[in-house]
Nucleic acid binder design. Structure first.
Lengths: 225, 225
DNA sequence: TCATTTCTTTACAAAATCTTTATATCCTTC
DNA sequence: GAAGGATATAAAGATTTTGTAAAGAAATGA
């Protein structure tokens, strides 16, 4: 069977070793690079299915490498970050990162994120039916069903949900969402977002206090699962 | 009752007269245009159920008019041709004509072709009976029954209801509905829509204040269920 | 032609949605 | 466990959108 190739770009040997073991034991083929330069070269010669990129690299900043890669590489790039680096994360997502993981990370979460990222870029975007648990979003009919019952959403609520759902599994920054839904010029109005996320949760979550669909990524944005 | 509208675009007055008599005596409403330009204008202001288009027009060639119409008009267009013009016919079919008739034509064949063309584009090949709760819409007969009693609708009311019902469950935007019923150029006249939705609701809903069939999607359009 | 129906337009009332403010809650860090 | 930042929620205006009635214009049919 074909093993998906994953490229790790990180300067810390222990992290690389840890990732290698976790990934290989789960059926992935792994390549490693200790520097950004080396990583770009490897990616160019052996385009992998997914790249794990450390945000803090010694030679060139991870952000720089990310931009370079995004010049031609269109598959998923997951950033590896340390805690409390929201600003870096937001920049990275703006630069085209697919997702991020905060060190130290649990293997389960790592694998889940990788699976979801790979799935996302293999499935065709053409589908207009998004099904997520008890939710069914029909982008063509512009309707949303929960447990098979059509629920009533306002224009903004629907737009927001559709945006999140189209990017299932991926973190969308506050700024990005505000730009998409309200337009440029509203990118600082994060309170709008909170209000509408709250009302959406009331309508689509079983328990709005423990949301299963719209997940808060504190300091960064929201994620739909 | 509700008569389907047919637009004739032909420069010869005798042909128009002949068609008009044949069609009106068979329950159609007829509009006439002597030039291609005039025809396009009429079609845009009163989208008919079907268009009869002469292939040899004096101002612009019928082929040109056909292409223009097909830019936005999706129902049937039957070309009227003279004998021995196979090449023209092939071009016309390539340009999106639904069918053709060779002059001189027998009335029986004309009516048969028209019936079949209208049937094809009103029903999407299959059923022409839409049943929704206590409503029964017959797209071929252009009648609507509520609780088994035929109710009286104006042409516009019927067209609107049929459009909504054919797209059951799907949100249709104001602009789309206006374009389909009133023609391109009416896409900002949302007030027309409100007036007609109100009068439709009065006729088909049990309680017009709590409509079950025509649902308002605020800021977007209407949905039929 | 004239009466009748249907469509268009206007005006205003009603409802829904959005924005803003205020306050509560959660979470991280010290 | 207290402080501070970020997030959640409720509820009040403010605004936009929708519904309805009714009058004038146009089209239709006898």
């Amino acid at each position: 069977m074909n093993k998906a190739e994953i490229l790790i770009i990180d300067d810390e040997p222990q992290i690389r070793k840890l990732l290698q073991i976790a990934l290989e034991s789960n059926g992935y083929t792994v390549r490693e690079a200790a520097t950004g330069k080396e990583g770009v070269l490897l990616a160019a010669n052996h385009p992998p299915e997914l790249i794990l990129l450390d945000i803090g690299l010694p030679d060139t900043s991870g952000q720089e490498i990310l931009k370079q890669l995004r010049g031609w590489y269109s598959k998923s790039i997951i950033m590896l970050t340390v805690q409390n680096s929201e600003a870096d994360i937001v920049t990275a997502l703006d630069n085209g990162a697919s997702d991020y993981l905060t060190k130290p990370f649990r293997t389960g979460e790592l694998l889940a994120r990788i699976r979801s990222s790979i799935r996302r870029n293999t499935t065709g975007e053409s589908n207009h039916l998004l099904s997520c648990g008890n939710l069914l979003i029909d982008l063509q009919a512009r309707t949303v069903k929960r447990n098979n019952e059509t629920i009533k959403l306002t224009t903004t609520e629907y737009n927001l949900l559709a945006l999140l759902a189209r990017n299932e599994g991926r973190v969308l920054t506050h700024q990005f969402i505000l730009k998409e839904i309200w337009g440029i010029g509203y990118q600082t109005e994060t309170q709008y977002l909170r209000v509408f996320v709250a009302s959406l949760r009331k309508k689509i979550e079983d328990d709005a206090n423990h949301p299963l669909h719209i997940i808060t990524e504190s300091g960064v944005g929201y994620r739909f699962v």
